[in-house]
Amino acid sequence: MSDVSRPPVLEARALAKRYRMGDVEIDALRGVDLALGEGELTVLLGPSGSGKSTLLNILGGLDAPSAGSVHYRGRALDFTDDRALTAYRRAHVGFVFQFYNLMPSLTARENVALVTDIAPSPLAPEEALALVGLTSRLDHFPSQLSGGEQQRVAIARAVARRPDVLLCDEPTGALDQRTGVVVLDVLDRVNRELGTTTAIITHNAVIARMAHRVVGFGDGRVVRDERNTTRAAPAELRW
C-alpha cells in the first residue's frame, strides 16, 4: 500500500520462491506484494529465515521467482533473459551485502572503480568514497580496513553508479552498534542527498525507526506495511 503521490519505482506482485539447498526444499516466499516508491527509504523487517534476502535478490534481478512478477518503473522484468537482467542491474541497481563482498585483492578505490568502469554515468571513485567519509583510506586493502570501513566502501561502490534503487541486505549485521550507526547514517544521507530509493533488510527492529516505511515479514509473507509517522535520526538509534 503505497502513497499514490509517489509512483512506485520497483513493484513485486504475487512473488513466490522455492529453492533446494542440498537435499532440502525450502519455500522462501509465498506470495508477496510490495511496492517501493520514489525516494523512499523502506526497511524490510523480519526474523532470519523469513525470506527477506530472497525477496531482495529477486527485486535486484539476482534470482528468478518461482511465480509472480517484478516491475521496474512499470516495465516487467524478464527473468528468462539473463542479459536483460544484467543490463538492469548494471544500470539501475546498487547492492550492499551483510559481509561486504569486497574484492580482497583490490584497494578501496579500485573496488569502487569496479563499478565506475562499467556504469554509464558514474561518480568518480574518490567522490563516492568521500561521500562515505573514507578519503583517507583510498588505497587501503580490505584486510587493512575495519568492518565498518569495509561496509562503507561497499556502500560507496553501490552508490557510485548513481543507481535508481539501492538494496541493502543486513548492512549492519556484522557490525557493532557504534559502527553500525555510522553506516546507517551514510545510508540515510545518500537517501536524502541523492534521492535514491533505498530498501534495507534487517531483523533489528530499532533500525526500522529511521525508515519512511516499515514492511514486516514473516514466514515468506508480508505481515504488515506501515508508514513511520516520525523518523529517527540514525545517531539516535541504540541497540
Binding site: D82, R89, R90, F97, L114, V115, I118
Partner: peptide
C-alpha cells in the same frame, strides 16, 4: 563463488 556473484550483482555480464 561469492566474488563471482558479487560481480554479477554489480552488473558485470557473464561474458565479461
Amino acid at each position: 563463488r561469492e566474488r563471482i556473484a558479487t560481480l554479477k550483482a554489480l552488473g558485470y555480464t557473464d561474458g565479461e
